[in-house]
Design a protein around this nucleic acid. Structure first.
Lengths: 224, 224
DNA sequence: AGACGGTCATACTTACCAGTCTAGCATGGG
DNA sequence: CCCATGCTAGACTGGTAAGTATGACCGTCT
């Protein structure tokens, strides 16, 4: 039905910004576009795809016509926003310096980073939105999987596989278990509002994950 | 805003079915109600809460007025349906005979049961619906957590805690890890359509979970 | 000054949807 | 036979939303 870009990055519009001197003009153009995207972000994340274009325009402090002059229709705006959000959260992935850590610290750090997103209203709402719309907009969740989940799990698996201290019999599956335990904690506690019904501290979960993974990895070794 | 029942179980309607001889009448009443609920099930699960009452009536093969004669409004119908669905899936929980199994078989069995629901379109759609509407209808996800997740995790934790063969340092957290790894697998593969982008067999995940949990549990013991 | 382009407010068109209303049809019980 | 009850089809009301159209405003470039 429709299509998400990502990868195809026209930066702003396909308009010709050859000379840097057109800055004044282009800047103002981008400013509106930016305001629209920020308004759309708040409204879409709060109300889901059913949010009205009037509400978005109002939230952005912009006339509805302006929204339609920057984005073809609702789908385009939505797609542009999701692209942007995925881009944003993808950049906050695991960096090179983590790879130098020992296995125990590495897993702990990954877990802490993943769970720290629980506090990010935008992340929690994005998760809810993507899962919720995954029926109507499969491309959306596929994009999420391809750009956020798959790379994350693969990097984690690659680390586990390459690690010399500990031998993992199935690094890919182990990576999925770690990722699943963490993301599901976010979904359960924040997305599904389970933190009151079944509270648990992040540290407690992290400690258990670290212990479990490390013990499992030591199956062939003798270590205290 | 509105309210889900569950617990208040009027079985069918609160109507008096004292004598089995009123069957003819009541049966026909229930038949319509049943048809409506089945239609609503298909349409709500496929399209989300935004599905139209006309579509539901059409799918149920029933006049719209009939829908409104059995259910006050859209919310009531939706609530009744969710109650019904939660009821249905809750009953398929872990039974007593599982508790007799040794730890390894127990965890494996739990995992198999949980993952077997991946094939159930209704379950996958319900998961998507509940998460997706958890912003607009927090009661919905809280009900899900209270009636399906919490009991499941608590039973699992209770088994782990009581188990004599293996010592778990934190059974509750361990139960959450197992549950998270499993449910997240369902969400990733089926709800978010990730099975093509990142395929993995259930058996492989189950084996890793079982190994991981059992090794972790053996930390204080010497067993092959 | 005049043309242009982006923006704004507002109104409009078209479509959909929740919930109601009406009038007719079928059946079963008195 | 008649009436009550549940059902049906379809029209209707009121409200909301996507997307378009209009006309006015304003800074910039020529």
């Amino acid at each position: 039905m429709w299509f998400f870009s990502l990868n195809s990055r026209p930066s702003q519009n396909s308009s010709n910004r050859t000379s840097e001197e057109g800055r004044d003009n282009v800047t103002r153009l981008s400013e509106k576009r930016e305001k629209i995207l920020e308004g759309a972000l708040r409204v879409f994340l709060a109300q889901g795809y059913s949010a009205s274009m009037d509400a978005i325009a109002a939230e952005a402090g912009v006339a509805k016509q302006t929204v339609y002059s920057h984005f073809k229709d609702k789908n385009s705006l939505f797609a542009a926003l999701i692209d942007r959000l995925l881009d944003h959260f993808v950049s906050a992935g695991l960096t090179a310096d983590l790879l130098a850590l020992d296995a125990r610290s590495f897993v702990r750090k990954i877990a802490q980073i993943t769970l720290s997103r629980m506090d990010d209203w935008e992340y929690v709402s994005l998760l809810r939105l993507i899962i919720g719309e995954s029926g109507r907009f499969p491309e959306l969740s596929e994009l999420y999987v391809a750009h956020m989940v798959k790379p994350g799990i693969e990097k984690l698996a690659a680390y586990l596989r390459a690690n010399q201290q500990v031998r993992f019999s199935d690094p890919e599956a182990t990576a999925r278990i770690i990722h699943g335990a963490l993301i599901n904690f976010v979904i359960l506690q924040e997305v599904m509002h389970g933190k009151h019904a079944m509270p648990m501290s992040r540290e407690r979960l992290i400690n258990s994950i670290v212990d479990m993974v490390l013990f499992a990895g030591e199956q062939g070794k003798q270590s205290s």
